[in-house]
């Protein structure tokens, strides 16, 4: 998974609207930088192949 840098501007704008998130133009660079780092970390995890039946770590017990 790779995220094109310009795509983040669109993602931020859409997420702010769709998810009712607070936003001011002055916050954009820091939010974008943080989102870019988090998505890079997520990509590192996502590209690691895991079997379909791998159970997520938190297991709910009824």
């Amino acid at each position: 998974m790779t995220t094109k840098p310009d795509a983040l501007d669109g993602l931020i704008e859409a997420a702010v609207q769709a998810l009712d998130l607070p936003f001011e133009p002055a916050w954009q660079p820091a939010i974008k930088a943080n989102l870019a780092v988090t998505l890079r970390q997520a990509a590192l995890v996502s590209e690691f192949p895991l079997p379909d039946d791998t159970e997520p770590a938190p297991v709910f017990q009824a």
Binding site: L21, P22, I31, K32, N34
Partner: peptide
């Protein structure tokens, strides 16, 4: 700013 990014 970190938390807002996390929400996305």
């Amino acid at each position: 700013d970190r938390l807002i990014a996390g929400a996305m």
